[in-house]
Design a protein around this nucleic acid. Structure first.
Lengths: 210, 210
DNA sequence: TAGATTGTTAATCGATTAACAATC
DNA sequence: TAGATTGTTAATCGATTAACAATC
């Protein structure tokens, strides 16, 4: 088994669950507990861990502090990662106001928008004209960017970001982005997820009667 | 092959791509075109369609208008679906301000929050006290809800929603929610997705030199 | 018709799950 | 020690992909 996106997502979930367990005062966990917290099977947990050389104690389970540290290192939490946002609309603004990134080593350093009106309302974080993106990203060697612009603008924005040196994208525009093979793109599409929930609620209603 | 979440997500993506093709003036598509637009293989497209009895013409491909209508019916776009939001923070507010749901037959009818301060600022949409959720949902037979509250509050909020009759959840809280087996839950976790992008950008940098 | 594309069946691939020996 | 849990290998499962006959 090669390392795979779902596997890394599970690592993040384990880490979140471990934070919570730690806050509750726990010191050790078994693969069983973690599996239950995250919604997978114990063998999946052990398998994931063994892929990254995370080991426990054959009777006492895993040490929570050690696990949190190791998972943090794997997931890049040892460094602070600078991230830019493009698009100061609803989503972009919500992201900029969100306080939780910092403690995960994620630092939203700037927002860019093509609309001068939005450049004004610097609600805590500076909103710059889109033309300044390239210089900014190059100067600070930013690698990660968030696209929160309408779908028609998304590819254009991506091209600018790529030319500036961005290597990874979190994309909120409901469109498939084209980029070089080594570009990392994760998509978040709220509408699609909602539509999906609606589908399965209706499908279950039809199947299970009433 | 049974119908599976990824398959339904692909149907939504096909639909979105078809809208765009239609706007560009196209009338027909081949499985090849759709596959390219969505980022899958042509055989995947045909396989998905055959699962739902969506047929084309063995030489002329598929009729775009027919496909859009059929996909809309499958995905429940024939009816308007009422949805409530719980939590009037950054995400909840962004959702309420978002204009794109309406044309997909999704109607955000109300928002609920436990904080009286947030109940005031009714920015377009009413924000009610959490206690009124149950009556509201029951009266209007709302089936779908969005959870946009902090993780510590999420399970509690879910329990209220379930008791009111909610059957499907879009959950923004970074926690695994517990509910009856027939409850549909989709999770969106921005932090986790960003962390994932960061991981793979770093992993690629290590692998592919530099 | 000949060529191209669908619809469907079979093969492949990879992830998840189960099982169990090692060992604390 | 005896019992419990890990770490890892093998089996299962299901989705994706390929192939190709049907047919427009």
């Amino acid at each position: 088994m090669t390392i795979n996106k779902n596997c890394i997502i599970r690592l993040s979930r384990y880490k979140n669950a471990l934070y919570r367990l730690k806050n509750l005062g726990f010191v050790k966990v078994f693969s069983d507990n973690l599996a239950d917290a995250v919604g997978v099977l114990p063998s999946q947990v052990r398998k994931d861990f063994s892929l990254f050389g995370l080991t426990g104690n054959r009777r006492g389970g895993y040490n929570i502090d050690e696990l949190i540290e190791s998972l943090g290192n794997i997931l890049g939490k040892d460094k602070v990662h600078e991230v830019i946002v493009v698009g100061a609309g609803n989503i972009g603004t919500a992201l900029m106001n969100y306080k939780g990134f910092e403690q995960e080593g994620i630092n939203l350093v700037a927002c860019f928008d093509i609309d001068p009106a939005k450049q004004k309302k610097a609600s805590g974080m500076p909103v710059f004209p889109l033309e300044e993106l390239k210089d900014f990203v190059k100067q600070r060697s930013v690698r990660i960017g968030i696209i929160a612009v309408p779908d028609i603008a998304a590819q254009q924005v991506l091209d600018i970001m790529i030319s500036a040196g961005i290597k990874g994208i979190l994309n909120f525009a409901p469109i498939r982005l084209r980029g070089p093979e080594d570009l990392v793109v994760n998509n978040i599409n709220v509408e699609l997820e909602l539509e999906n929930v609606i589908y399965f609620v209706n499908a279950l209603r039809k199947t299970r009667g009433k």
